[in-house]
Computed example of a mutant assay.
Amino acid sequence: MSDQKHDSTTHFGYQEVPVEDKARRVADVFHSVAAKYDIMNDLMSGGIHRLWKRLTIEQSGVRRGHRVLDIAGGTGDLTLRFSRLVGPEGEVVLADINDSMLKVGRDKLLDHGATGNIEFVQANAECLPFPDNHFDVITIAFGLRNVTDKDAALRSMTRVLKPGGKVMVLEFSKTDNPALTKLYDFYSFNILPQMGRIIANDAESYRYLAESIRMHPDQETLKQMMETAGLVNCKYQNLTGGIVALHTGIKP
Rank of each mutant, 00 (worst) to 15 (best):
Q4V: 05
H6T: 08
H6I: 04
S8A: 14
T9F: 10
T9K: 13
H11A: 14
F12T: 00
E16R: 12
V17E: 04
P18W: 00
V19L: 01
E20A: 13
D21S: 14
K22G: 00
V26M: 07
F30C: 05
S32W: 05
S32H: 15
S32T: 15
V33W: 02
V33L: 11
A35C: 08
K36V: 11
D38W: 07
L43H: 06
R54L: 11
R54K: 15
E58G: 08
Q59C: 07
Q59K: 14
G61P: 01
V62L: 06
R64P: 00
G65M: 11
R67Q: 12
L69H: 04
I71Q: 01
G74Q: 01
D77R: 02
L78Y: 00
T79Y: 00
R81M: 10
S83W: 06
E89M: 09
E89K: 14
G90Y: 04
E91Q: 15
V92Q: 09
V93T: 13
V93H: 08
D96W: 10
L110D: 11
G113N: 02
A114L: 02
G116W: 00
G116E: 11
N117R: 03
F120W: 01
N124H: 03
N124F: 02
E126M: 14
C127W: 09
P131V: 00
D132T: 11
H134F: 15
F135E: 02
D136S: 09
V137A: 06
I138G: 02
I140T: 10
A141P: 03
F142K: 05
F142A: 10
G143N: 06
G143T: 08
R145C: 06
D149M: 04
K150R: 13
K150Q: 15
A152N: 09
A152L: 14
A153Y: 11
M157E: 09
R159Q: 06
G165I: 04
G165R: 06
M168C: 03
M168D: 01
V169T: 03
V169K: 04
K174Y: 11
D176Q: 12
D176A: 08
D176L: 10
N177R: 13
P178Q: 12
A179C: 07
T181M: 15
K182E: 14
L183C: 09
Y184G: 04
D185S: 14
F186V: 11
F186W: 15
N190P: 01
I191L: 15
L192P: 11
P193N: 07
A200W: 00
N201C: 05
D202W: 07
R207Q: 13
Y208D: 07
A210Y: 07
E211W: 08
H216C: 04
P217H: 07
P217Q: 08
E220S: 14
E227R: 06
A229K: 08
L231F: 09
C234D: 05
K235V: 01
Y236K: 00
Y236T: 02
Q237T: 14
N238A: 14
N238I: 00
G241W: 03
G241K: 03
L246H: 10
G249W: 09
G249N: 12
P252N: 15
